[in-house]
Each structure stands twice: as C-alpha cells, then as structure tokens.
C-alpha cells in the first residue's frame, strides 16, 4: 500500500531545509510507520529532490513522525529555480511511498 492510505502529511520550509510530517490516521498504525518509514527509505524515495541528510524524529505523543530533509529545496526557498520553491507539494511525494 501507499503511505497515502494510512497517513497524512504537511510540508514546511526553512531556507534550504524541507520538513515533512507523517501522521497516522489511526494511532494503531504508528508502530508500522516507525518500522517501515525509516530515514534511509525516505532518502531513497526522495533522492532526486532531497540532496542532503534526512533526520527522523519520533513523536509518539501525537502518533507522528517528522522528517527534516537538508539541501532539499533547490538551493533555498528564495533563490530556487523550482516552480514550487517552498516544496509545498512534496508532502504528497512522501505519501506516494509504498510500504
């Protein structure tokens, strides 16, 4: 299945850093997200977009993961040539990932 089936996400930006939340619709699916959606898997999935390291934070209090992706916004929100310079659509790129 796709992450889209069990989770939702919002993308955020800080300079050249992209943040992607991954929020389980049902808390029971949170352990599955923790197990399957590692920082390495996300890096592989987004390798054409996120050029730098990816750090994963676990937030069991809200059954959510947060991926902080460095060097991921084409040089930075203000100077990127990408049409979506903020990377706002990339939440749905993460949700395309199959597990």
């Amino acid at each position: 299945m796709k992450l889209y089936d069990i989770a939702h996400s919002r993308a955020g930006d800080k300079g050249n850093t992209l943040t992607l939340s991954l929020i389980a619709y049902h808390e029971k699916d949170y352990p599955l997200l923790c197990e399957k959606v590692t920082a390495e898997k996300v890096k592989e999935h987004l390798k054409e977009i996120a050029k730098g390291d990816i750090i994963r934070y676990e937030l069991p209090n809200i059954a959510s993961l947060l991926f902080v992706c460095y060097d991921a916004l084409g040089g930075g929100v203000t100077t990127s040539l990408r049409m979506d310079a903020h990377g706002k659509t990339l939440s749905y790129a993460l949700l395309e990932m199959k597990i």
Binding site: G12, T19, S21, I62, S64, L66
Partner: peptide, 17 residues
C-alpha cells in the same frame, strides 16, 4: 480536529525537541 492540529504542530519545525 486532531488531524489539523497535528499537521500544524509539526509545520516548519526542524527539531520538535
């Protein structure tokens, strides 16, 4: 709801701790 609150809690956060 919880979903809108969670999306916003983590929005543009580079270190939630």
């Amino acid at each position: 709801n919880l979903q809108t609150a969670k999306e916003q809690l983590l929005y543009e956060v580079v270190n939630p701790y």
